[in-house]
Design a protein around this nucleic acid. Structure first.
Length: 272
DNA sequence: CGCAATTCCTGTATGC
DNA sequence: TGCATACAGGAATTGC
């Protein structure tokens, strides 16, 4: 589902088209993870300045305040020039502007749309304050990454998922990146040697960057901002391939559970 | 019934 | 003892 690449592809799909627009109407459906924290009617008349991304959050900058939007596990955003059809049972946020309409569809409602006055507002700090560095940005420095690993005694898979060192690595790309780096997911982060950490650092960047280039790939039900979906298939090396042969060495891919989440790895390619 | 997806929150453990 | 940090587990939801 939406990991960093999907969120970025979604952003790229509508950021330029909505920038400069004037909000006409905001409609909320069923409750999402958190309340909007402002009357929807209070947003009417405001201008959309830009759409940024921080981790898996989309930040929609307004002329006054901003919206923090998260796709959760099952959310997808669609931007259209056409009039919005009547909302379906899973359409929980509509933002109609003079340039087009944004609609969030999220069957499981783990997603969220939240308003904050600015990024220093308590709510924004709560959601964004602990996030690690952007893996595709200049801030993803190897020295800092390695130093961070040294301080963590949890399994490396968990440390990647936690998002406090580096953001955007979800359950699928965590398994993929660790395969690419040849590191066993259960290995304590603090025990990863410098050269192997360097491989992981590069692998995280590579896996995510490649996925963005492909237009977001993870799951079959991902849809981009144009509502296109189903084209992208994840060419997973290990994720979801338990019992199948490793694409590199033909050993049988194993599945384990870490923190109530599935992890996939090749017992031969990935060393402890 | 179990599982899949994300991340905040709570409770417990550890270190100084 | 207190405080900060680290980590494990639980919760929210819905459709397969």
């Amino acid at each position: 589902m939406p990991e960093l690449p999907e969120v970025e592809v979604t952003r790229l799909g509508f950021a330029d088209r909505i920038a400069g627009a004037r909000i006409e109407v905001v409609r909320m459906g069923k409750p999402l993870r958190w309340a909007l924290a402002v009357e929807p009617s209070a947003l009417a008349g405001r201008a959309v300045r830009a759409v940024r991304r921080r981790g898996k959050y989309l930040l929609i900058d307004l002329d006054e305040g901003l919206l923090l939007l998260h796709l959760g596990m099952s959310g997808s955003l669609r931007f259209t020039d056409m009039p919005l059809p009547p909302p379906g049972p899973h359409d929980h946020f509509d933002m109609v502007t003079n340039r087009g309409s944004l609609r969030l569809n999220d069957p499981r409602r783990f997603g969220a749309v939240v308003y904050a006055r600015d990024e220093a507002a308590p709510l924004a700090i709560k959601l964004l304050g602990r996030l690690g560095v952007e893996p595709l940005g200049d801030g993803f420095d190897f020295g800092a990454f390695f130093a961070g690993l040294k301080k963590r005694h949890a399994p490396i898979k968990q440390v990647l998922l936690a998002g406090e060192l580096v953001v955007g690595v979800g359950n699928i790309y965590a398994s993929e990146a660790l395969f690419l780096a040849g590191i066993r997911p259960t290995l304590s982060a603090s025990r990863i040697s410098r050269p192997r950490a360097a491989r992981l650092h590069a692998a995280v960047r590579e896996v995510l960057a490649r996925a963005v280039e492909r237009g977001g790939s993870t799951l079959r039900d991902f849809t981009n901002a144009d509502g296109q979906g189903g084209y992208f298939q994840l060419e997973a090396t290990v994720y979801g391939r338990a019992g199948e042969p490793c694409r590199v060495c033909s050993a049988t891919i194993r599945q384990i559970r870490q923190g109530q989440r599935s992890t996939f790895f090749c017992p031969s390619c990935q060393k402890c």
